[in-house]
């Protein structure tokens, strides 16, 4: 009897241990050639070191695509792309934890000061453009375009504007329903800075960190109005209507690959950046190769994941600058 019970306990415990043991399996799958921390290890056949990248969730899809191709070309190399947001990425960059930081906005002055304080030299590269797109419901047949002042009236808490009629004469006297990216996103930061000068956004706007929720909001509401990255508009062209925006020259521009790339869709086009640590470029071959690969591939990858590529000459210039860092 006693033995029997012990055997049973043994079995049940081993079930638990089996679960634990499963965890060790992956170790055996590893190529014997890979070495955990060869940060600047050089082998004759390709690169085998590791590179740490972190930063903006907006830029992430581009870097993910680059890292995917990079891993195929250099199977021994280990590229880790984190998503901590532009600010979170710089925090790690300042702490010296990353070789490269990506951002959907330029580095802030106070961040730049901290980087300098930490004794880290860096170089900024633009890798793509994103056109913030303002969209309405397809049943909305009155909005033909919006000016920056009108956007400011619609989105600013201070203006007190709540209906379409208050924005422009002849528009229906119906309440506008606003959908905006969440306050943690670089998209929100950029829009708030450009349109509202950093002032309070309408308090009754629905905020969401998930841009798909904004798309659904506008799809489901005739009086809906939202803004988000171009990629989300490009995927939902049939179900939301884009609003052309008047630029500083007084031209009315619809965001598209051409208008974002040639700079006429402004000021809602924003550049996307990578910041590389100069020291890593010199000392870590993998980091250098990865940065080089990023600049070479960024245009193609950006287009593929829904952003707008820069002019080719800009990438070539960047590559020359990068070459100088090695």
């Amino acid at each position: 009897m006693k033995m029997n019970r012990l055997a049973k306990i043994g079995t049940s415990l081993s079930v638990a241990l089996l679960l634990a043991a499963c965890g060790n399996e992956p170790t055996d799958e590893n190529d014997t050639g890979t070495n955990g921390d060869t940060s600047d290890g050089e082998t004759s056949e390709g690169i085998a070191g590791s590179v740490q990248v972190d930063g903006s969730s907006t830029v992430f899809p581009i870097l993910e695509a680059v890292a995917e191709e990079f891993s195929i070309a250099n199977p021994e190399a280990r590229a880790t792309i984190g998503v901590s947001g532009s600010g979170g990425g710089f925090e790690k960059f300042i702490a010296g934890e990353t070789d490269m930081s990506n951002a959907s906005r330029p580095i802030k002055e106070e961040e730049a000061a901290l980087v300098e304080e930490a004794g880290i030299e860096y170089t900024e590269f633009q890798i793509a453009l994103d056109g913030l797109s303002v969209v309405v419901n397809p049943e909305n047949d009155w909005v033909d375009y919006l000016t920056l002042e009108e956007l400011e009236m619609i989105w600013g808490e201070a203006s007190g504007v709540t209906t379409w009629a208050e924005v422009r004469d002849g528009w229906p006297d119906e309440e506008i329903k606003l959908f905006s990216p969440g306050t943690d996103s670089g998209t929100y930061d950029y829009f708030d800075e450009i349109i509202l000068d950093g002032e309070q956004i309408k308090r009754d706007a629905s905020l969401s960190e998930d841009d798909n929720v904004l798309v659904q909001g506008v799809q489901g509401s005739t009086n809906g109005l939202a803004y988000f990255g171009y990629a989300y508009y490009a995927e939902n062209m049939d179900t939301v209507k884009i609003v052309p925006i008047e630029n500083s020259e007084g031209e009315i521009i619809t965001p598209s690959d051409e208008t974002v790339q040639d700079g006429t869709y402004e000021p809602l086009s924003r550049p996307l950046f990578i910041y590389v640590k100069n020291e890593s470029m010199k000392e870590n071959e993998t980091a250098y190769e990865f940065a080089k690969y990023t600049l070479e591939m960024a245009g193609e990858m950006a287009t593929e994941v829904g952003y707008v590529a820069l002019d080719d000459s800009l990438y070539e210039e960047s590559l020359e600058t990068l070459e100088g860092l090695k």
Binding site: P26, T27, E29, N30, T34, G36, D54, F60, L63, E64, A67, E68, S71, R78, A79, T80, I81, G82, V83, S84
Partner: peptide
């Protein structure tokens, strides 16, 4: 704690991302 990452390699130690 930052587990949202793109990784295209199998972890080899408990200190990996």
């Amino acid at each position: 704690i930052g587990a949202m990452t793109f990784i295209a390699y199998t972890p080899t130690s408990i200190l990996d991302s």
